[in-house]
């Protein structure tokens, strides 16, 4: 399936639509509560730290640290099966959010990705949004 595409997020999903709208301008955004300071991620309409909902969108620098990762060797998904081996990682952004993404731009993901590695966002553009991927900083 040469024409298989990456499964894309729903740009109209209620809680995350502002996040995905910002990716069109290649901005990586997260929410912080005006009242209690809690960083809220994934995006939501309410604060998980207090009973408020005064959340402000902030732009992250796009840099972070690999918290943990795995290199996928087997997938039956029509798009991802052609990508193996590829690295999936939880990344701690410097501002606090922990985001799931892929580490790209490495010759051998099993050797060139590590916990604690510094990474920076790279964007994969699509029609309605861009996908935030990461490469070693």
């Amino acid at each position: 399936m040469a024409d298989a595409k990456r499964p894309l997020p729903n740009p109209n999903e209620y809680d995350t639509r502002e996040f995905w709208a910002a990716t069109k301008e290649q901005k990586l955004v997260y929410q912080q509560c005006d009242h209690c300071g809690t960083v809220v991620f994934h995006p939501r309409r309410h604060c998980t730290g207090c009973l408020g909902n005064a959340l402000s969108w902030r732009e992250a620098a796009g840099t972070g640290t690999v918290y943990t990762f795995s290199v996928v060797r087997q997938s039956y998904h029509p798009f991802f099966r052609a990508q193996v081996p590829y690295a999936v990682a939880w990344i701690d952004l410097d501002e606090g959010p922990r985001i799931l993404s892929n580490i790209i731009g490495v010759a051998d993901p099993a050797k060139d990705v590590a916990i604690g590695q510094r990474v920076t966002v790279v964007w994969e553009p699509h029609e309605d949004l861009s996908i935030p991927l990461f490469r070693p900083a």
Binding site: P7, P9, N10, Q74, F79
Partner: peptide, 13 residues
């Protein structure tokens, strides 16, 4: 849902 909408693009099996 919102969590899945933030994660499913990664191909995490």
């Amino acid at each position: 849902g919102p969590a899945d909408n933030m994660e499913s693009f990664t191909g995490m099996t």
